[in-house]
């Protein structure tokens, strides 16, 4: 019974994350959903190598535990966590640029804005193309702290 609860937790996290990925309309929430799905996947991997009553796979002085949990999935998860951090950082960096280019983080809204910008760049419309670049951003950077001049941000 216990193992079913553990598996249900891990699979549940994975499914919650993927559901959030396909259901949410806000790009940042999609990144958060990706993080949750990653946690679920890591838990599943760890569970695959878990032994009940097993000890951590470390040889301590004098005692060599007879039952140890499998070190191979743990090493894989160690790798996966670090790669996950890199992927999240890259995703956040892309989101900063999307927000600066389109002024929104809504999924459909951002796609519409980008399509308009691309159409204007290609000259499909007769309207004069608005120059828009990352050096003249349309939207501000998200989470810009509002601080008045000479005021502490406490």
């Amino acid at each position: 019974m216990m193992e079913m609860v553990l598996y249900a937790g891990a699979v549940g996290l994975l499914v919650i994350g993927i559901a959030g990925l396909v259901l949410s309309h806000h790009l940042f929430r999609q990144v958060l959903a990706l993080v949750i799905a990653e946690a679920g996947a890591n838990l599943l991997l760890l569970l695959a190598g878990y032994r009940f009553g097993g000890e951590a796979p470390i040889w301590s002085e004098g005692s060599f535990p007879s039952v140890m949990v499998d070190p191979v999935p743990q090493a894989m998860v160690l790798t996966a966590i670090v790669i996950g951090v890199g992927i999240q950082a890259l995703a956040i960096a892309l989101l900063i640029r999307v927000r600066q280019q389109t002024g929104t983080l809504d999924r459909e809204q951002a796609v519409i804005e980008m399509r308009e910008a691309l159409d204007q760049e290609l000259g499909r419309f007769s309207t004069a193309p608005k120059p828009r670049s990352q050096y003249a951003p349309k939207g501000e950077r998200p989470l810009y702290p509002v601080v008045e001049e000479g005021q502490d941000a406490r």
């Binding site: 670090v82 790669i83 890199g86 992927i87 950082a89 890259l90 960096a93 892309l94 900063i96 640029r97 990352q134 050096y135």
Partner: peptide, 15 residues
């Protein structure tokens, strides 16, 4: 992979 991601973040966010 970590190096590639760090480089890509620098590329995306650089001016």
């Amino acid at each position: 992979i970590l190096f590639a991601s760090a480089t890509a973040v620098g590329l995306v966010l650089s001016t």
